[in-house]
Design a protein around this nucleic acid. Sequence first.
DNA 1: GAGCCGATATTCT
DNA 2: GAATATCGGCTCC
Length: 182
Amino acid sequence: MNAEVASVLAGDADEVAPRLLGMQLSTRVAGTITSITLSEVEAYLSDDPASHTFAGRTARNAPMFGPAGGVYVYRSYGIHWCMNIVTGPAGDGQAILIRGGLPATGTEKMIERRGRSDHLADGPGKVCQALGVDGSFTGTFLGDRVHLSGEPDTRLWTATPRIGISKAIDRELRFVALPARE
DNA sequence: GAGCCGATATTCT
DNA sequence: GAATATCGGCTCC
């Protein structure tokens, strides 16, 4: 993780999340690099009833209480993996959920992992499958097996309520990149 | 294209 | 034992 990325991640999740849009998220698994351009993320804050950290520290969410730049992966609905990037000061319990992106490099490998050639990374579980992320990634840091690169983009984005949760749905903490304009 | 529904296992109560 | 930060396949427009 380079210094610029580190300074971006030092802020609070709701402030950092929109700045990740347009950056590349990549993984290296068994020597193969795959990456996506982030187009959809969600912020989870420490005083947030919908956050995994709201009820306190447990064995599962421990990485979220670590320093910014940590990777937190959990299993969702028993089937899927979801990946988060930890932000804010250590001990705070904030993270940004990676919800979706556009295939950038290693598209062939992502098609192989997904078993289909469309909808490669347009959902949290699909992002992890396409990038080869599983539970073994939790507790690692950006720069180990997961990398964040590129310039924080100034492209237009919009905020909406988050998806699939039942608490604090009035907070607009989901950030979606708008399609490129001509 | 939008909307319903079942599958699945880890976590916490 | 219940809940869950989802997906894919299936309907029905």
